[in-house]
């Protein structure tokens, strides 16, 4: 069974947990899944075992705290320490997938938005002129910002587990909204403030959309072939 099969099975079986056990188990699940660079296969296998154990124990009237102890974070840390690391090749593949996917989105929207603006609102032009040097720099900086964003979101999720008192939904929403705004703002700001250097080239804006769709296709094929997210 592949890790994705375990995730599906886990999703179905989790529904059989009592309210209290489910809340604790899902905290453990989030905390252990966001453990950094550990083998996804081994992570999902052990999560599945913990779930089965908890379901059996629940039949005997035991709670998650009876089974896993009262210091859940410490227990999870012990587990994580024993999970083998992810294979480097898969980690690289996963990184490449995210980069290609992100560039695909950026390029497609850039192309389509400029095309629509020009065709229907007569804003801008059908051609896009940029300098190669600053163009590449912008893309690299945006990728760095993206990885920072992902790391912050992961840390935020991890910190949201094992809270005695659950914070209010709107507070969590505002926090995430704020983080996302800064990310989007920074991504957009970089090309605006970047001084242009290197030789200039001009290409039709629709060309960006074509490249974007191509990148999408590549990420789709990668995902199909190596089961990265499904």
């Amino acid at each position: 069974m592949n890790s994705k099969d375990f995730i599906k099975l886990n999703n179905d079986m989790r529904e059989k947990l009592s309210e209290e056990n489910k809340e604790i188990y899902e905290d453990m699940l989030v905390y252990i899944r966001l453990n950094g660079n550990k083998s996804e296969q081994q992570t999902e296998e052990v999560l599945f075992e913990l779930l089965e154990h908890l379901l059996e124990a629940q039949k005997e009237g035991k709670t998650a705290r009876d089974v896993f102890g009262h210091n859940l974070r410490k227990y999870c840390d012990e587990l994580i320490a024993e999970i083998p690391g992810e294979k480097q090749s898969f980690a690289l593949l996963f990184g490449a997938y995210i980069v290609i996917y992100f560039l695909g989105i950026l390029s497609t929207f850039h192309g389509i938005a400029n095309f629509v603006l020009h065709q229907f609102f007569d804003v801008g032009s059908n051609d896009f002129t940029f300098s190669i040097g600053s163009g590449i720099t912008v893309v690299i900086i945006d990728l760095v910002i993206l990885s920072g964003f992902i790391l912050i979101i992961l840390r935020w999720l991890r910190n949201s587990t094992f809270k005695e008192k659950k914070p209010k939904k709107w507070v969590e929403f505002l926090q995430l909204w704020f983080i996302s705004m800064i990310f989007i703002g920074a991504t957009v700001l970089v090309p605006i403030i970047m001084p242009s250097f290197g030789s200039e080239i001009t290409i039709p804006v629709l060309f960006f959309a074509v490249i974007g769709v191509l990148l999408f296709l590549i990420s789709f094929v990668l995902n199909k072939k190596f089961r990265i997210t499904k």
């Binding site: 081994q42 296998e45 052990v46 075992e49 124990a57 227990y75 012990e78």
Partner: peptide, 22 residues
């Protein structure tokens, strides 16, 4: 405690002393 077997099972697998099959 019941849960304490799982870190050990993970370690035994990592050391290749046991194997799990579904």
């Amino acid at each position: 405690s019941e849960g304490s077997i799982y870190p050990i099972l993970l370690r035994l697998q990592k050391e290749n002393l046991i194997e799990g099959t579904m």
